[in-house]
C-alpha cells in the first residue's frame, strides 16, 4: 500500500487527574502555599524534603515534620537553553536538585540564572515563591530558586 494511502490523524489524550495528597504530602503543599518548606524526619534522623509518607530507604513511617529552607545548595544542575512548552520557566534556566538547609535529600525544581556560567554545584540558592494570591498548594507555588545574593 502506498504510504499516501495510510491514514494519520492528530490525537490528543487528556487525563483530568485529581490526586488525594495524604497527610505528609498535603502538609508540604500546604506549607508551600504559605511560602515555606517542611520536611519529614526519617531513619537516623535524616530529614527528607520533599517529604514522603515512608522513609525511602527503610520503608518505615516518617516522624515529625520540621521546617527547612528557604535557602539551600545545588547538588546537581542541568542547563536548558531551549525550554520546552511545559517547563516551569519559559526563558533559559537550569533544572537543579536543591538540598535545602536542614534537609538530607534534594528536591527537583528550576533555578533562574542569567546563564550557565553563573551556576555551579554547591552554589547557594534561595526560594522565590509566586505571589501569595496565585498559590494553590502545588509545586508551581515555588516559581523557582534563585542564586543567593540576587544574581538572577
Amino acid at each position: 500500500m502506498a504510504e499516501s494511502e495510510v491514514l494519520h490523524a492528530e490525537h490528543r489524550l487528556e487525563y483530568p487527574y485529581a490526586r488525594s495528597t495524604g497527610p505528609i504530602i498535603g502538609a508540604f503543599l500546604t506549607a508551600l502555599r504559605e511560602g515555606r518548606f517542611v520536611g519529614a524526619t526519617g531513619s537516623e534522623g535524616k530529614v527528607i524534603v520533599p517529604p514522603t509518607e515512608y522513609d525511602p530507604l527503610t520503608g518505615d513511617d516518617v516522624g515529625e515534620l520540621v521546617e527547612v529552607g528557604p535557602g539551600g545548595v545545588i547538588d546537581s544542575w542541568a542547563w536548558v537553553s531551549h525550554p520546552l512548552r511545559k517547563h516551569p520557566l519559559q526563558v533559559p534556566f537550569a533544572w537543579a536538585l536543591v538540598r535545602l538547609d536542614g534537609a538530607d535529600t534534594a528536591m527537583l525544581h528550576a533555578v533562574a540564572a542569567p546563564g550557565p556560567e553563573a551556576l555551579a554545584t554547591g552554589a547557594r540558592v534561595t526560594a522565590k515563591f509566586c505571589p501569595e494570591a496565585e498559590r494553590v498548594g502545588s509545586m508551581a507555588d515555588l516559581e523557582s530558586f534563585v542564586l543567593e545574593g540576587g544574581a538572577a
Binding site: Y17, T21, P88, A110, T121
Partner: peptide, 25 residues
C-alpha cells in the same frame, strides 16, 4: 513522582543531564 516531580514536566533529557553532571562533579 506524580506529586513533586511530574507537575513540573521535567523532561527525560534534563533528568539525565542532572545525573551526568553529578558524574562529572
Amino acid at each position: 513522582d506524580p506529586y513533586y516531580e511530574a507537575p513540573l514536566w521535567p523532561d527525560i533529557v534534563s533528568l539525565n543531564a542532572l545525573q551526568a553532571r553529578a558524574m562529572i562533579d
